[in-house]
Design a protein around this nucleic acid. Structure first.
Lengths: 109, 109
DNA sequence: TCGTCTACTTAGCGTTACTATGTACTGGTA
DNA sequence: TACCAGTACATAGTAACGCTAAGTAGACGA
């Protein structure tokens, strides 16, 4: 992973994961594959699990343990009301930043 | 400053500052005011100075000391060739991220 | 003299993503 | 049976970055 991308993901990866959870609950391993499918090929598993633990501690997601046919039990994460609220703030913050950056890039010639 | 914004600025603030330097050299204090004018009202001075030190150590900018009429001498930063290269990479990285996020937001309903 | 504006510096902190490694279960195959 | 790949989660240690807070220092007006 490039250094720039690593730093840029700080703060955004959380939003990305929460956005992936809107409407459809998912478990950690599943989320890492979803991320890979979306082009985030180099995000380490450990990163995702640590992030999920944090979001749970912040009370943004509800967790349910379900047996798997293929391995250890899955921890299924569901976005709750607080998480939805938090995600809205995320989009607001991101929009602000994206607008300023777009403007800067346009000026760049 | 919101926690989300603080985290999101990691990685992007550097690009923002380098972008501000394209074409027109500037000194630290000036850059903080430029940032404020652009809506980044809450970015601490210390943050900017530390960032400038880092960019200098990475060899992305050239520095020149010039006397000021109103206080201590200014350290004027100019984007050099390496910095320009780095900024290009920044835009590439950011575009990638912005596209994925835009897509995610669109799906969000 | 005091406060304000200009201008830069730095030590310590919290948060985050990455690296690396480990545990544990299932199923296929040699 | 032994081994390996795939599934699924966990965690200790590290690097990088932005923030807080405090400081130094010069110019200038009240």
């Amino acid at each position: 992973m490039g250094r720039q991308m690593t730093e840029m993901l700080k703060g955004t990866l959380e939003g990305i994961v929460l956005a992936l959870l809107t409407g459809k609950p998912a478990y950690g391993y599943e989320i890492t594959t979803l991320l890979r499918d979306r082009g985030f090929a180099d995000i380490a598993e450990g990163t995702v699990y640590a992030l999920l633990v944090r979001t749970e501690q912040k009370g943004l997601v509800d967790v349910e343990k379900r047996p798997s046919e293929k391995g250890p039990p899955r921890k299924v994460y569901t976005l709750n009301t607080q998480g939805d609220e938090y995600l809205k703030e995320f989009w607001t913050t991101w929009s602000f930043l994206a607008e300023r950056l777009e403007q800067l890039r346009d000026e760049g010639n």
